[in-house]
């Protein structure tokens, strides 16, 4: 029983589970660069980053949720609701929903639209968090309900149609650039760094891992499991609101069908990034790698003229392989 003082033992399966996405991402980038030189064009790369940043932002929030061994299936629907709520505020109601010129609009300032989109997201997250912690309904069921309910609320709010045509200071958040970097990419990067710091360096972050690792033990050690679980659903709601606002700004339109199927991309990014669905293991670095991996794969396959149907199959297969690695790591843990 001699241990190796000071040096954590190297564990190949754990290592693979943690860094597989990043390693695979690098290999993909190299592969696409060889097969299709246009891939490395800076405009293309920035485009990939911009496309990734919407689902990537939500994936950051989803990482918190999955670290507690939870899940949020409602994010796609919530994006539709938050985007419409923000757009509704920006346009001052449905009457001017298609108005384009600033003169025709009886709208509100952009910060108010952003704030409402984010507050609606956090509010919806709080409702789901309360249902999970107080009513003890499993997260899968609560957020499956949310998947249906938030989409319904979005349709009600918008009367089924889009709200489009925003002022330039609104669309800047989705279409603008600082130097050459698209604004959504900058927001994604800042959010990723902040989330990394919170998870790695704060008590709250440690408690998220503890709850996911062993909720009963965390409770016995005076960690408020309820508060932590509630918080992570509010956090993912925050990111849904922010992402919804950016998406509507990029498309210059918010609609009730926005974000259809987005939950799949988001959960895939987190899980491919090495976060365990059993909770307690995972990093923001992994999630960002997972989100980039999906984006690069889509983009590269498009450039190589591979059918979009095939892309879906490829992403599905990678998702299952990622969970297989996770399972292998888990079963060894339960010696």
């Amino acid at each position: 029983m001699s241990s190796n003082p000071g040096r954590p033992r190297f564990d190949a399966v754990d290592f693979a589970a943690q860094y597989a996405a990043f390693i695979f991402l690098i290999l993909l980038v190299i592969g696409f660069a060889i097969l299709q030189p246009n891939f490395l064009n800076p405009f293309n790369l920035l485009n990939v980053l911009r496309q990734v940043s919407i689902s990537g932002l939500i994936a950051i929030g989803m990482t918190f949720v999955i670290l507690t061994a939870g899940i949020d299936l409602s994010v796609g629907s919530l994006v539709a609701l938050c985007g419409l709520a923000g757009a509704y505020v920006a346009k001052g109601g449905l009457d001017s929903r298609f108005a384009i010129g600033a003169a025709e609009q009886a709208g509100n300032p952009v910060w108010m639209a952003t704030g409402v989109a984010i507050l609606v997201g956090m509010g919806a997250g709080a409702v789901q968090g309360l249902a999970i912690t107080r009513l003890r309904v499993p997260p899968f069921v609560v957020t499956l309900g949310g998947l249906s309910a938030w989409r319904g609320a979005a349709l009600l709010l918008s009367d089924g149609g889009p709200i489009s045509g925003f002022t330039p200071d609104y669309t800047w958040w989705g279409q603008g650039r600082i130097w050459t970097i698209p604004v959504p990419v900058i927001l994604f990067a800042v959010a990723a760094i902040l989330a990394h710091v919170v998870l790695r360096y704060t008590r709250f972050g440690l408690h998220v891992y503890a709850v996911g690792g062993n909720a009963a033990a965390a409770t016995l050690n005076t960690v408020s499991t309820r508060r932590i679980v509630f918080s992570v659903y509010v956090i993912v709601g925050f990111f849904c609101g922010l992402a919804a606002f950016i998406l509507s700004a990029r498309l210059n339109s918010a609609e009730a069908v926005a974000g259809l199927g987005l939950e799949l991309d988001v959960i895939a990014a987190v899980v491919i990034g090495g976060t365990s669905l059993f909770g307690g293991v995972g990093t923001i670095f992994g999630t960002v790698s997972g989100a980039l991996l999906i984006g690069v794969l889509r983009n590269g396959l498009v450039l190589l003229n591979v059918s979009s149907f095939v892309q879906q199959i490829v992403i599905g297969v990678i998702l299952v392989l990622a969970v297989a690695v996770d399972q292998a790591a888990m079963s060894r843990k339960g010696r």
């Binding site: 891992y209 690792g213 062993n214 033990a217 965390a218 016995l220 050690n221 960690v223 307690g280 293991v281």
Partner: peptide
């Protein structure tokens, strides 16, 4: 009896869990 430890955390973080 079951020690109330979080397997996914280090020894020192387990010791300080709740009073970091």
């Amino acid at each position: 009896q079951d020690l109330a430890l979080c397997d996914n955390l280090s020894a020192s973080l387990n010791i300080f869990l709740g009073r970091e």
